[in-house]
Each structure stands twice: as structure tokens, then as C-alpha cells.
Write a protein that binds this DNA or RNA. Sequence first.
DNA 1: TAATAAATAGTAATCATTCCTAATAAATAA
DNA 2: TTATTTATTAGGAATGATTACTATTTATTA
Lengths: 121, 121
Amino acid sequence: MRYSYQREIILDIVRSTKTHPTAEWIHNKAQKKIKAISLGTVYRNLGLLENLGKIQTVKDNNVVRYDCNIEPHNHLKCKICDTLIDIPVANEAMKKNVKSKYNFDVDDINITFIGTCSKHN
Amino acid sequence: MRYSYQREIILDIVRSTKTHPTAEWIHNKAQKKIKAISLGTVYRNLGLLENLGKIQTVKDNNVVRYDCNIEPHNHLKCKICDTLIDIPVANEAMKKNVKSKYNFDVDDINITFIGTCSKHN
DNA sequence: TAATAAATAGTAATCATTCCTAATAAATAA
DNA sequence: TTATTTATTAGGAATGATTACTATTTATTA
Ligand SMILES: [Mn+2]
Ligand SMILES: [Mn+2]
Ligand SMILES: [Zn+2]
Ligand SMILES: [Zn+2]
């Protein structure tokens, strides 16, 4: 894979925040550094960075959010401010349970707890 | 809310299957009973039926699937045949754990186990 | 039966994402 | 360094699921 300044900037931006930003948010930030960067370039490079294992994606409703935390983890989603909060996950027991009960081989577990975060007490 | 034959047919169709169908699939089925039924009518009535608590929705990638099982439950998703399999969920312990660790009030938990179902042994 | 307004059919609009293509630029060889 | 090659980009069009709009139809009530 060839070097690209656009890709470098995009990775920097994803790594600069824990807010699980969308492609559009990343595009807006990137335009401050590269005025003519296109949204297509942002999407393409986010996809490449995901394939390289340098970032993760999180599906949130009907949008994809990007995550610089590449550890396996899950999220708390606040229905008031839409924040996604990282939480660790211990899932080996769950996987074994599902395998024995349903004969279903689990590769990945998506868990989102939806509710109200501590900001809204 | 006024009676509508379209709504009756749509509810019948959702209740006729455990396959978690999409709006388009439901629309195709409905057209066999009502030739001119529109996709908009299908979407509107599915929304109404969800508000009435007669059906549930499941977000699957970038499509919404409809579910006649209105018990709280979660799903196994097979990455080979895309089947969604209902599983019961015991979540009170999880909710309490998240509340004490993160001061986050959980209303709902979405869990999807992604992997390979028993058809593909 | 007539009046009222909810529901519908058909179509246009929306929005996130992907696709397409001529132009640009990174990597390599001469 | 300069020329060649081809990956990458910018910009715009296309896609696909869902929602919005509106004239017409139809369930309900008087
Ligand atoms: Mn995260
Ligand atoms: Mn289900
Ligand atoms: Zn919040
Ligand atoms: Zn399967």
C-alpha cells in the first residue's frame, strides 16, 4: 500500500478522539488540514484502515462510527446525549454457553446497553 | 385508530413467520393479497404496529427487520445464511453491574452473537 | 345518505454510503 | 534527475432503505 497524506490525516483524526466519530465528522475535521479532501476519500481510507486493523467500526442506528480503540470491547449508549462509552467485555463464558445450548459457533458478540449516562443525574 | 384491511394483512404476515422479515419482504407477500398496496403503507403500518406493542423491530446491519416475538429477547446471527435465531436473555444482573460500575441506568440491552449456525456443520 | 377525517397509493425527497472516472501523485527504474 | 507506472484522489453520480408529500379513497358517525 502506497503512502497517502490523506490517509495519515484521517488516522490522526480518528486517534484524536474517544467520541466514536462518523465519517462526516472526520471529513469536516480533515478539511481543516486538506481543504479539497473528498468524502469518498474519507470513506475509502476508513475502510482500508479498518482492514489493516488500525481502527474499528461501531454500528450505531443507521450510521457507522469509527473507533480508535481496537481492543475487543462493548458500549454503553446514552439515549439522551448519544454518547458511546467503552466497556470491557468478558465473553468466553457466554460463547461456550451459546455453543452448548444452540450449537452455534460465536465469532463476535455485539452488546450495547442503552440508557442514561452519569451526566444526567 | 381506524380499522384498515392493509394493516390487518401486514400484521398477519409478520405473525406468519419467525424469519424476522424486512419491510420489502412483507410488501411482496402483502401484494399477493392486495395487489396495489404501497411500500409506504407497509412502512407506516409496521411503525404503528410497533408503537402498539404488537410487533418489535430488530436492527440488522443497515436494515430493519420485524419480529412478531414481543418478549424481550436477543439473537444469534449466522454470518453464512444471515438467519436470526431468538434466544432468551437474563439481564438483571448485567444491568445492576453496569449501574454500579458506570453509574449508567440501563433501559435496554441489545446483544447479537455473530457466528455460524448449526446448519453449517 | 352525507359529512368528516383517517388511511392509502404513488411518487418525490432524504441521507448515508458506494461507485465511477479523469486527473494527480507516490514509487520505481532509467 | 527525469520518465514511467499505476495507486490514489476529487468530484460527482448512483444506490438503497426509509420517510415525506399529496390527491384520492374509505372507514366511521351523524
Ligand atoms: Mn468503543
Ligand atoms: Mn427475534
Ligand atoms: Zn448522556
Ligand atoms: Zn446459518
